[in-house]
Design a protein around this nucleic acid. Structure first.
Lengths: 156, 156
DNA sequence: TTCTAAGGTCAATATAGTTGACTTTAGGAT
DNA sequence: ATCCTAAAGTCAACTATATTGACCTTAGAA
């Protein structure tokens, strides 16, 4: 008999009976998120980081000189939850933090070159997955995907 | 001064500078997943359940008489991780478990009527979000969304 | 009777978060 | 100078969801 091989979730993507028209869509959302982040997460693991670190790097890359408080709001987590991954990134010199000249109360976060490289590589893995999928459906299909996702995202 | 109101993640969906063409797509995937599951998670919380319970109910609804081992493979988690939510659902009489007549080794899981109701309500919240989004883009847009998500999901 | 597959359970650990209760740092107001 | 406050930092306890490893039970098959 064969050894039981650990199964990745997703192997049975198409195996479930569909009770409703939209069941396939629900499953695609689930496996789509996994599919998009899988390669990035694997890369991040090789450099000792994970999703929360990537989220921080992603935001700081797109909003340089963001304050800690703003970062907390954007990420939607508590400052205690931010603390560990943020400090790791500072220790690893992926981020710098300094008081601003005029607003000494708040600190400004920036990516170092190493931080930029790591953020780019991780995000590139995700963009690559999306890009290849978009290529298969053309610009109109990509636009439709964006429109659907926007409507779903704004549902709350 | 106003009290600081706890911010839900997602309030700043459009606020980040876009460094790349596909950054908007990455963010839409993140917020799309949130948007689709938000209402369902809120409903589940009112009945003392959460996402892992829903995943179990969802799979058993679509594969009645599934064995514990198959369920583990489909969900992609360890049996220890399955144990707690599964037992809760059995205690709450949302699931039944019995040995099959011919294959006494494995147990067969089924939803009770209460389990079916809960599964349907939770999944309905998700389907409603997707359905409304599909309505905005028409059948061709919906098909394109499915094609893109399928390509992304199968990337691994 | 012994072997094995399926299931069940316990313990320790990891990750990613929470709330509450502080302290520190630094600027602003009186 | 002193007090007040905003922003940041820290410590502790807790929750939820997962992991691995070790072990036990149930029940059919050789």
């Amino acid at each position: 008999m064969q050894k039981t091989v650990p199964h990745a979730a997703g192997l049975h993507r198409a195996s479930l009976k569909k009770l409703h028209d939209l069941d396939a869509a629900l499953e695609l959302m689930y496996y789509g998120w996994r599919g998009m982040t899988l390669a990035a997460d694997q890369y991040l693991a090789t450099v000792g980081l994970s999703r929360p670190h990537h989220r921080i790097l992603y935001v700081v890359a797109r909003q340089p000189d963001v304050s800690i408080g703003s970062l907390i709001e954007i990420l939607g987590i508590s400052k205690q939850a931010l603390n560990r991954p943020l400090n790791l990134l500072l220790e690893r010199k992926m981020l710098t933090s300094k008081r601003s000249p005029e607003q000494h109360r708040s600190k400004l976060l920036r990516l170092t070159e190493a931080g930029k490289r790591t953020e780019q590589r991780a995000s590139d893995y995700e963009r690559k997955v999306v890009s290849e999928a978009f290529d298969r459906v053309g610009p109109r299909g990509a636009a439709a995907w964006m429109a659907v996702m926007g409507a779903i995202a704004d549902n709350n």
